[in-house]
């Protein structure tokens, strides 16, 4: 019995090795791309990001794609190392942390692997990567605040619900609004972090309503928190949206959030585009070194008054 079991295990092992070897065999003419990313479970954004990568770097487009997803920087480093040993042509990285990448990127350079960063920057010398395709979170905030100023409200009394403190998205999206508070063009009713937690956002707005303070703008740094805030308004019977008392601003362009916009319940949603794959693919196919190291992924903002169903289908994330 024991012998049989051992034999079985050995057979399985051999078969596995063969399968892996076969899998490696057929890469004729395809560009080998290794992607190190955060796991799709992280957020709707990441899910769309991962799908986009898989769609663009498909065999039909002339790529052979290897992927690795992890939230842990150490695991990501090991995987990147593995991809380099495997002999990929291009290494695409969205790092979990900004530090610790020097050695791996140097090895990539020695091995002649070209590195592109996407979505997140890494703290290394610019010469170690070809280009970084990233979102400019500060620009997202600016676009939203400029839109808000263009509404010409008689007064701006803002409830500002922040994301997890220290995250790129929070710092960028907070900056634009902080400038307005500082120049007294807008009044800060309350500025609190809900750390991306919808329920926490609802509690924050509830406490403002209970205190009886007046407000007419809610600036939430993602869609979920905007939804939490709106739930608190609904319970208190405060109107919101296009014809309402309170202006609602969210970010990320989830499909359900854009539908709220289309229904006129929210006013504005800022895009945070997860679609970097096409830009990188174009760069790879062109064969030229990119003009700048930092390539900003263009992002839009949607106004409830001008949004169309077509926009939702094109730019919406999730379902």
């Amino acid at each position: 019995m024991r012998k049989l079991r051992a034999l079985f295990l050995v057979t399985v092992l051999v078969l596995c090795c063969m399968a892996v070897a076969c899998g490696k065999g057929d890469d004729d003419g395809l560009i080998k791309v290794g992607v190190v990313n955060n796991p799709p479970s992280e957020s709707g954004y990441r899910e769309a990001n991962v799908k986009d990568m898989e769609n663009v770097f498909s065999e039909a487009n002339g790529y052979k794609l290897q992927t690795f997803y992890s939230k842990s920087n150490d695991e990501q480093l090991q995987a990147a190392q593995g991809f380099i040993t495997d002999g990929v042509d291009y290494l695409l990285i969205s790092a979990a942390e900004t530090t610790g990448w020097d050695d791996v990127l140097k090895k990539a350079k020695e091995a002649g692997v070209k590195v592109y960063l996407f979505d997140r920057m890494i703290n290394v010398d610019e010469s170690l990567y070809e280009a970084a395709v990233v979102s400019d979170m500060a620009a997202e905030g600016d676009t939203a605040v400029n839109w808000l100023l263009a509404q010409n409200l008689p007064e701006y009394k803002v409830i500002h619900i922040q994301g997890a403190m220290g995250s790129d998205a929070q710092i960028g999206r907070t900056g634009a609004l902080d400038a307005q508070f500082a120049s007294n063009k807008m009044t800060k009713v309350v500025q609190q972090t809900a750390a991306w937690d919808e329920a926490e956002a609802k509690k924050i707005v509830e406490s403002v309503i209970n205190s009886g303070e007046d407000f007419n703008v809610i600036y939430a740094e993602n869609d979920g928190m905007a939804k939490g805030a709106v739930a608190a308004l609904d319970e208190a019977g405060i109107t919101h949206g296009v014809d309402g008392k309170v202006v609602i601003i969210g970010f990320d362009c989830n499909r359900w959030a854009l539908r709220e916009l289309l229904a006129g319940k929210w006013n504005y949603d800022g895009q945070c585009s997860p679609f970097q794959a096409q830009i990188i693919s174009d760069l790879i196919k062109s064969g030229k070194a990119p003009a700048t190291k930092k390539i900003i992924n263009e992002e839009k903002g949607f106004d409830a008054k001008t949004l169309t169903q077509a926009d939702i289908d094109t730019y919406g994330l999730g379902d």
């Binding site: 937690d197 329920a199 739930a231």
Partner: peptide, 16 residues
Amino acid sequence: IGVSRLGLINHETLLL
């Protein structure tokens, strides 16, 4: 209850 409050499930933040 947590889901019903907002009509939304965020598996990362629900009752965090």
